[in-house]
Design a protein around this nucleic acid. Structure first.
Lengths: 335, 335
DNA sequence: TTGAAAGCGTTACCAA
DNA sequence: TTGGTAACGCTTTCAA
């Protein structure tokens, strides 16, 4: 009972060529000066046969699919999911559909996804790029395919991106901790050479430095290769080794959550014995016994901007847009 | 610098027809008995020219897109996001790509998404169906398009689905509360005639009934139309009106979270004065001062099963599969 | 063993 | 002004 009605069926029924039907159904009847009665007949027939245009055929012909390929780290992660939602809305508003994939921070998966999306002729990409995939991104650019990076970028690559002011994020957070009287402030970060992580570490260090606290600078670097459950154990171990420490600044959401479990387990008193600032929001932060202060990324702005820049590029904009959004420091009971 | 290399380019370069190239690049050289040197030449040329097959053209020709259309309520909601991830993995494993959209529990959006995905010729749908969209789903079935519903289903509709045993979920939870000595157990649910919600309410009522607690049955019904922030205020109001109550059972994740905010605000002592059981997991549950007991849906099973059933249908299975998964009751400090 | 050619459903060029 | 018809890139049948 498949409803495969094509332009040809309508054309036959009305007794005209498919061209006319196409014009009318695309609203070009004025421009192409199609006879009035023919227009009405075609409209009528289309409704009667319940005609549904075939986007695949249209895409093949037009050379554009009205599809955006989105690559995030993990769609089940709230950060990815929220930004995906914002991108979806902006895409739909502009008549685009989103196909997505999760890279799991894995180079091979990233490449496989890019290839799949290329085969499917996406009009452009929004990518949260995995470390070490400069060449994959560069390859897209060389092919002339519109790309916007989010969350992270590559210094050597002249590509549009929308990212957080990572330096300012941790700089402000550290300054706040110092103002609250904390001095032995340690940071928990991922061990990676990614620019965004380097910038977050630099923000912390710089804030410490200009307050004459160099001696206290100490970054707990968690290897990326570690499994989720091990993260907690690793941080716990490091915290116990730490001889003096009165505040902790976390570099990402996942590290914050792992840290919260540790702090609960070790029974550290927040904020009296230990000040904490987390990264990104989470409902879990609200229910920690001392609701967490945290650095908030304006996800709406990032997503909307990324999508609109990409759609601009798809529509022919030539200008590379590198947009930096400002973090918001939400202060609550934990610092 | 666009890399538009087609079969024809390779054919020309090697001096053969596009048919041969197609065979070789699809691995049919044995079956079609293509000459050995020709095979090698074609492979070589394809690599040299960096040939990328055009899925759009292939889809048009084959009449299948290897694409799954996924409609969830809201991709930014962790429940949707997690199940999406599972579906993604299963899809990728089988060579499918996922296009998705958020319905926001809105009939119009649901219909628009279905239409968009139809135009795009998806091979099948996985849908968490919005209340009142029976006809939209029925329309797909009538067209012969494979559909699998998740989370909810329609009694009148004979469609494949994968859902939770909703009755058992709340029945078991209520029984547990009763066994812990709670008697004045109230339920917080959405006000809707959806089967899944009705079943959850029924599970609660039945457990109360068989324990001679009919008199205590009381369902706080939150209107669906309410805004997120209002949910909290509404529940708070109802809780204050409640003259006697010693336990609360929440019917969904969002209601649980809203309830947790209220309980914190009203300063109710959990579990001494009030037992709580939530629905679905959440990191926030872990950090509530009395870590929450909750009914867990096996999301992995739901997603995997839904995807595999759908792929089965796409590949020609005729059988309608209606799969019910079992809830897991996780008991912790709050009950 | 190979190739010509017919489509898939649409759009858009160009001829009348 | 209107309407054929070629072409988008691929698969697949049929003939050579």
């Amino acid at each position: 009972m498949s409803n495969r009605v094509s332009l040809k069926d309508i054309a036959q029924k009305v007794g005209v060529s498919t061209a006319l039907v196409s014009y009318v159904l695309n609203g070009l009847e004025k421009e192409k000066r199609v006879g009035e009665k023919v227009v009405i007949q075609i409209r009528e027939a289309a409704r009667e046969l319940n005609y549904q245009p075939n986007q695949i055929a249209r895409s093949l012909r037009r050379g554009s699919t009205k599809t955006i390929g989105l690559i995030v780290f993990d769609i089940s992660n709230p950060f990815s999911a929220q930004i995906t939602r914002v991108i979806e809305d902006e895409a739909v508003k502009n008549g685009f559909t989103v196909i997505f994939g999760s890279s799991d921070e894995n180079k091979q998966k990233s490449e496989a996804l890019i290839d799949t999306f290329l085969y499917r002729q996406v009009d452009g990409f929004i990518i949260a790029p995995v470390e070490g995939t400069e060449n994959q991104i560069a390859g897209l650019i060389k092919k002339g395919i519109p790309v916007v990076l989010i969350d992270r970028y590559f210094l050597q690559l002249n590509v549009s991106h929308v990212i957080l002011d990572n330096f300012k994020a941790t700089f402000d957070a550290t300054i706040h901790l110092i103002q609250q009287g904390y001095k032995q402030i340690k940071m928990v970060a991922w061990l990676t050479s990614s620019t965004h992580m380097q910038e977050r570490v630099r923000g912390y260090k710089e804030a410490m430095r200009i307050n004459d606290l160099q001696a206290e600078i100490n970054v707990i670097e968690v290897p990326l290769s570690i499994l989720k459950l091990e993260t907690e154990a690793f941080i716990e171990m490091k915290l116990q080794e730490m001889s003096h420490m009165d505040a902790l600044l976390f570099a990402t959401n996942s590290l914050t959550l792992a840290g919260m479990y540790c702090i609960n387990k070790l029974g550290l008193k927040v904020p009296q014995k230990l000040g904490i600032i987390g990264f990104d929001g989470s409902e879990a932060f609200d229910f920690f016994y001392a609701p967490l202060s945290y650095v908030e990324q304006p996800l709406n702005e990032i997503g909307t901007k990324a999508a609109s820049v990409l759609i601009g590029l798809i529509n022919g904009d030539k200008e590379i847009v590198q947009h930096v959004v400002q973090p918001v420091l939400n202060i609550r009971n934990s610092s």
